[in-house]
Amino acid sequence: MTARPLLAVDGIAKRFRGLRAVDGVGFDVPQGGIVALIGPNGAGKTTVFNLIAGVYRPDAGRIFLDGADITGLRPDQICKAGIARTFQIVRPFGGLSVLDNVVVGALRQTADLAAARRAALAILERLGLAAKAAQPAHALTLPERKRLETARALATRPKLLLLDEVMAGLRPVEIDGMVAVLTALCRETGLTILLTEHVMRAVMALSHKIVVLHHGQKICEGPPAIVARDPQVLRSYLGSVGRHGGGVAVPC
């Protein structure tokens, strides 16, 4: 018997005022895997995220987490079920300290404040934000805020982490650092990640599988090396140039 995927997305669709933002998309995210959802702007990546995270209710299709149907649940219920997400446009709790931002997430698992603080500090340590713990979140730089988003989501101890372009705006060194952190997390804690990303360097380095969206439809799915050579993907997404591998950052 093959292992049951952690997340199974089955033919979900969403229309906004007649426009088909997502049209019958389906894919699996295996337990412990890292899957990247890529595609040009407007391909429907963020909408897929919002459908999984419960911000929108799909017009059609179903979403399963660990075999349980989570279609149409509210965002907070989805989080309780074990899916945490970051926002593409970061949304820190600006007036709270960096530590307290993460404590809010950590309180998902424990009502004991001291324990929540310890957990939050450990995560900040991991993401290199421990030195900033006491600062108000609105004082952080954009790359720091992106890491804070990730830290806050991780603090809820999700089974599945949805990362919405957490690498955008980072310098190459910072990207490598983030990639290292995420791979280590998956290896050590069995975390599963679904991410959208424009930074190909990160996508290629991280993901076990890539799902390519175009105009709201899935046009390709497979291991990075295969997807990067797929002619349809190259045509629709990478433009005319067929360079695959490191360093190709598709302009936003």
Partner: peptide
């Protein structure tokens, strides 16, 4: 958290 950002609060369960 809700005072600062309701959507982000929801996403944290």
């Amino acid at each position: 958290a809700i005072r600062e950002d309701e959507e982000a609060a929801k996403a944290l369960g």
